[in-house]
Amino acid sequence: MKIMAVHVNKTLCKGCGLCMTVCPKNVYEITSETNRKGFNVVAAVRESDCIKCRRCEVTCPDMALWIED
């Protein structure tokens, strides 16, 4: 059973890509999906690879990411 652990708040994400640069497991990918502000949001496409190091959570400038324990 897949456990959802990586939450991306699409309303807050601005698609800057800083989470992709700090993630050691390359979990994130910028998608073609846009939010209401017109930014291409990131998605946790390889969520099962996540090791919960939380570097993305403290790096995200927009508080859009949250790793659930």
Partner: peptide, 21 residues
């Protein structure tokens, strides 16, 4: 008031997170 007005990738948002922590 969110999302805030900082540009994508601006460091100000990271300062908010660090300050609150």
């Amino acid at each position: 008031k969110l999302p805030h007005f900082f540009c994508p990738g601006c460091g100000c948002g990271q300062v908010i997170t660090a300050f609150l922590k």
